[in-house]
């Protein structure tokens, strides 16, 4: 076993975090199991399906990150694709938007190839500049102007949300090495996903314990001030403890964790608002207990670019 891990070559810091993740999963499964002996509430059943899905997602994520870099790029690219597909299955588009949608799908491999090669200057402008010109032009070429405004807004937004944001996860691995920082891009990737997801969980838990005043009742009935602030404080605290995964100093880690927690909340409510507008409960049913892919990664879609550029500014 030791030999295997050496071959795969993951740094000591990452091993610690993988161990922590597995410990959290084991702990929550045991707690839910014991709780299940005493009660059979509906919430418990949902928590159990959610935990089961967490097990699957964490296993997939950990194996995808440690096996090889190329697989990591492909997996994150597929995540983008699945999110974009869910987005287009839910939002209302016109028939003449299909050409634009096709180009949006084709943008995914290009964007991830740029991340893979590490061509930062192109990577960072390909969607916000080039596709922003190309997609409206494609829509105009269809010759159908009725409701074209909403399509011109919706298609680039879908690209920014599902492809541009998430592709920064892939670029984290392409970042150049820094002396004396052994966790590397994978450490940063792990830090980002861990803090974003633990922030979601913490907001949920604190909301159940001390949540009274609703923060945005019309958009997200379960979000409370208690949950938001409790989640924010615990995420900053956990981020501070995990700072060995990043090349940042103490106050920088606190700033970055604070932004991840705050922006994670923003991503959550932005996608919720789209769901309310379209009259659906979830974006899909891909992950039992969580809803669709986009329901799970809604906060990641916005935290990723913010995290990336903060770290890029501080450390690179």
């Amino acid at each position: 076993m030791n030999k295997l891990i050496e071959n795969i070559n993951i740094s000591g810091e990452i091993q610690i975090v993988i161990f922590i993740i597995l410990a959290i999963l084991v702990f929550s499964s045991i707690v839910l199991g014991i709780w299940g002996l005493f009660s059979k509430s509906k919430m418990l059943v949902e928590l159990k399906t959610r935990t089961k899905s967490w097990w699957i997602m964490c296993t997939l994520f950990i194996t995808a990150t440690i096996i090889s870099n190329v697989i990591t790029y492909v997996c994150i690219g597929f995540l983008s694709f699945a999110a974009l597909r869910e987005f287009y299955s839910v939002i209302k588009l016109r028939k003449s938007d299909r050409a634009g949608m096709l180009w949006c799908y084709l943008a995914i491999p290009v964007q991830y190839y740029l991340a893979y090669r590490g061509w930062y200057e192109l990577f960072i402008v390909f969607i916000p500049v080039f596709m922003f010109v190309w997609i409206p032009f494609i829509l105009v070429l269809q010759g159908e102007t009725k409701m074209i405004m909403s399509s011109m807004a919706g298609l680039p937004t879908s690209l920014m949300l599902c492809v541009f944001g998430l592709s920064h996860m892939a670029y984290l691995i392409s970042l150049p090495e820094i002396d004396g920082f052994s966790a590397g891009g994978k450490g940063l990737l792990l830090f980002l996903i861990f803090i974003t997801q633990i922030n979601d969980v913490m907001q949920f838990i604190w909301g159940k314990i001390i949540g009274k005043h609703k923060i945005l009742p019309k958009i997200s009935p379960n979000k409370t001030w208690g949950g938001f602030i409790g989640g924010l404080i615990s995420s900053v605290f956990i981020g501070y403890l995990m700072s060995f995964l990043t090349p940042l100093n103490d106050w920088q880690v606190i700033v970055v964790s604070f932004f991840i927690a705050g922006v994670g909340f923003v991503g959550d409510v932005v996608v919720s608002a789209i769901k309310r507008d379209m009259g659906v409960k979830d974006m899909g049913q891909a992950i039992p207990g969580h809803g669709g892919v986009l329901d799970r990664i809604d906060s990641l879609a916005l935290t990723t670019p913010i995290f990336f550029h903060l770290v890029y500014f501080f450390a690179y």
């Binding site: 287009y88 299955s89 949608m101 096709l102």
Partner: peptide, 18 residues
Amino acid sequence: EGIGRVLPKGNKIMLPSI
């Protein structure tokens, strides 16, 4: 449900859609 979005009437290209 939803196959109409994959390949609607009068279209030749299939697009992914749940």
